Computed example of a mutant assay.
Amino acid sequence: MSTLVLVHGFWHGAWCWNEVVPHVVAGGRLTVAVDMAGHGLYARRPRWSTEQPYNPEAVGTEVSPVADVTLDDAAELLTSQIKRIGGGEPVTVVAHSAAGPVLTRTAQRTPELVAHAVYLTAYMPASGVSAAAYTRLPEAADDRVAPLLQGDPAAIGALRLDFATDDAVYRQGLREAFYGDVDPVLADAATGLLTPDGPIGVMLGATTLTRDGWGSVPRTYIVCTRDMAIRPGLQAKFVAEADAAFPDNPTSVVTLDASHSPFLSKPGELADLLIPLG
């Protein structure tokens, strides 16, 4: 079977798959986790996040050091990673959350490199629609992430979270949004590894989808039924739109009774779902 390439969502890094990888490898599947553009080893932290004393005003006004990262940039990086990992052979790519539009752009441009596209409670935007557009829909109205965002994304160039604050209510909001079913000690450790800025360009880019591009790639959507960041209703909308556009290549759907971060709360169960794909 093809190698699994795991791509994290906004604010996270390849580290978030650490609990999943051993399960997948034990199941006989090669797997590699990579960093997305603007994250992990490619992250650049705004000054306010490390400077002392803490300056709450700067949180909402400082222009992000990853403001220039676009969807094209993220897709080009992912393409180079899967070429290197697969040695030119197709791989199965698992995209979480905001990595979804990056996978979509990559699969549209180079469908021969993607054996299977797996969306783990991820944005899977329709043709010509940005991921950001979905955040304004009724299906996203009660998500827990939007109230946590700091500053004007258009002005600072990022979707920004404040991990430096000691506001207990805000920090509890972070846990509820991302790690509702994760052990609190593990959730605190994960929060300490997050980076503040997700480049807005990734969410604003849109991809025109074609039947012989993205529409030709087998795809699976893993619905997380307790997700408070990308609500189940919005996840269902992604699938419905994809199937309406490409009915000859319907989306395979599986469900997981988990929050937005099953790689931390249910790594074994998630691995069991991923191992047979592609």
Rank of each mutant, 00 (worst) to 15 (best):
G60A: 14
V129R: 15
H12P: 04
R136C: 09
M203W: 10
A189K: 11
R160S: 01
D73G: 07
A37L: 04
M203Q: 12
M1P: 13
A117N: 07
Q81V: 00
Y221I: 02
D166R: 12
P147L: 02
A126E: 15
H23M: 09
P111M: 07
A33Q: 06
A177I: 05
G215H: 05
V94F: 00
G192K: 04
Y119A: 00
C16F: 02
G60R: 12
H12D: 08
I222H: 05
N55S: 15
V169P: 00
V217N: 06
V94K: 00
Y119R: 05
L30K: 15
N55L: 11
P65G: 09
E139G: 04
L148H: 05
R109Y: 00
R105I: 01
D166S: 14
A177F: 05
T61L: 13
P232H: 05
G38Q: 11
P267R: 09
R175Y: 01
A58L: 15
Y54E: 01
L174I: 14
A99L: 09
P101R: 00
E176Q: 14
G180I: 00
L174Q: 10
A189W: 12
I85W: 01
L234K: 05
A117M: 06
E51M: 11
S49V: 08
V217T: 10
G128N: 13
P46V: 02
T79K: 02
A187V: 03
H8M: 00
G268R: 12
A140S: 15
R84T: 14
V202W: 10
R109C: 04
V25P: 05
D35N: 10
Y54T: 01
R175M: 06
V91W: 08
S261I: 08
T104K: 07
V185L: 09
T104L: 13
P199M: 08
G38D: 08
V253I: 10
A74F: 12
L174N: 02
G128R: 11
T70G: 02
